[in-house]
Design a protein around this nucleic acid. Structure first.
Lengths: 161, 161
DNA sequence: ACATAATAGTTGCAAATGAAACTATATACG
DNA sequence: CGTATATAGTTTCATTTGCAACTATTATGT
């Protein structure tokens, strides 16, 4: 990626310097690498892996999974169905609302999850290898604020259209 | 997003703290916002907009577009076809290699591009509103290094599978 | 020169995605 | 209560995506 000039001209735009593009580019690179790895090693798709990770933290309904992860409810539904089908996920009756279920990992699911986590952490570690602790903290902070900011902008954009 | 404890436990993983996930989450948020805006305002899909932005910088072949942007050649092909169909893009004969063409914007394409750029820069500005110059520079730097690192890790991952 | 291999771009197909309609249950309000 | 409205999750369908096979052209080796 090249240097952005100090003074921005407002009639041109270098795609390489355009934040949304760079974010997407970087994210896609990582996502693809991860998707391939998980598919090859564990037969899991990204939504399935994400669902497992969330439910492993704390059992929750599909709606909660969607809200936390930004996944579409259709995506969550299919991921859950696939995991239940493989015996990795259980739906526990929710007596407060019988439309939904509490999702949690089965023992098999926990076992698989336990095998995945070190791989995931290792991958993250490799990606972050060139970053010292301060930089990692900065990245954490910047990304968090960016997500917040993006969510805010997104709302405004929607209302303008 | 929550605080990551100083000492990492290696058997658990909070999805909210997992870098690839956060990157993807943030990127998707922005991408969706942008995709909706461009589609509504200019009838452009993201690949079409990216192609325009690249070609506006300097005419190039489809292959070069793909190499620079990470877009699949199929995606580039379809984006180019759509833009040519709308009279926004021209394919100029490439005498050195008649399999490929030099792509450049038509006057109409330039005109549309000129209308898009301020919108894009404005959007970026809004997203980065809460970040001072130093933080923006940091973000630039961190993302660039992250992309590089991700590309490296991706290569290793592929060879391991 | 001629066959073989490589490359730019397109097309066909199969998988992933998400909006909208649908089912079943829950809540609100007369 | 009973009817209307909202919500959790599923299914259907249309769109988007990218790999693989294909066409047209170019480069290479003999």
């Amino acid at each position: 990626m090249t240097e952005r000039p100090e003074t921005l001209r407002s009639d041109r735009l270098r795609l390489d310097d355009f934040l949304p593009y760079r974010l997407s580019y970087t994210s896609n690179l990582l996502s693809t690498a991860i998707a391939d790895t998980y598919q090859a090693m564990f037969g899991l798709k990204i939504p399935e892996w994400r669902l497992m990770a969330l439910v492993a933290e704390a059992p929750m309904t599909q709606l909660q999974v969607g809200a936390r992860s930004g996944m579409d409810k259709v995506t969550v539904s299919r991921a859950a169905a696939a995991l239940v089908g493989r015996g990795l996920l259980a739906r526990a009756r929710n007596d407060e609302d019988r439309r939904s279920h509490h999702l949690k990992l089965t023992p098999d699911g926990e076992a698989l999850y336990a095998r995945i986590v070190p791989k995931a952490l290792d991958l993250e570690k490799r990606v972050l290898a060139g970053f010292d602790a301060a930089e990692q903290a900065q990245l954490d902070d910047l990304l968090a604020r960016l997500a917040e900011s993006a969510a805010r902008v997104m709302l405004r954009v929607e209302s303008e259209t």
